[in-house]
Design a protein around this nucleic acid. Sequence first.
DNA 1: CAGTATCCGAGTTGATACTG
DNA 2: CAGTATCAACTCGGATACTG
Lengths: 126, 126
Amino acid sequence: MTKAPRSGPYICGIDAALDVVSGKWKGLILWELDEHGVRRFAELRRGLPGVSEKMLTQHLREMEADGLVHRQVHAEVPPRVEYSLTEHGHTLNTALAPLGAWGVDRLRRERSDLVEHRDAAALPRP
Amino acid sequence: MTKAPRSGPYICGIDAALDVVSGKWKGLILWELDEHGVRRFAELRRGLPGVSEKMLTQHLREMEADGLVHRQVHAEVPPRVEYSLTEHGHTLNTALAPLGAWGVDRLRRERSDLVEHRDAAALPRP
DNA sequence: CAGTATCCGAGTTGATACTG
DNA sequence: CAGTATCAACTCGGATACTG
């Protein structure tokens, strides 16, 4: 088994939306796929420094089940699997944009991680 | 102890933002405080059907530490404690609005919980 | 009223090894 | 390459009981 099907009913939309993006790497996966359009398993892995194969697979499966991600398997040797966002995944990403901006502000306020304070420059990745 | 201080650094804003709203009731707490302005402990409890005192306290403490919630203690008998959103909490809520709308759409698509299908009417709580 | 303190089971994440 | 399988930590959330 992979995911807890959520115990009770959703009380509001925020609730229902947070449920599908809660997971250590889901926000990043969404961002990565939105940025590049199509990504192979190994490419995603490289884009998410520190993720384990297990977690990446698990998150991708859940997001596929939630209708956010499309999984295209090419019957070749060596195997090739491509992941991309579905329409819903894309609209979710759009809805996530303001939150991303807020997060960047939060990071700026705390100037902790991400920027090592050497330069007020580049804060990539919305 | 209450919360894992997060292992690694944040990679993007989405990441940093999701970290502060991930928790079973945080989205609802934000919504409740934004809606009513100021709420006492027991009022919040009533507004979040099913929450335990422990989780409510824990989430409120974390959100206070994250600078989202202000906690005002009145030195009275019986004790009175009032919670409200800080400026950051309010902007976060605003940034969360599109996500809430997406969530409502998701619920409509699946017509699962929330609406029992008897009527296409009321879908309260953004 | 507004919490704290404990205990516990379930769920989530991580590390490692193996496969078609 | 793109995964599975397994085991072990670690967290999260819930239940219960008690306090200033």
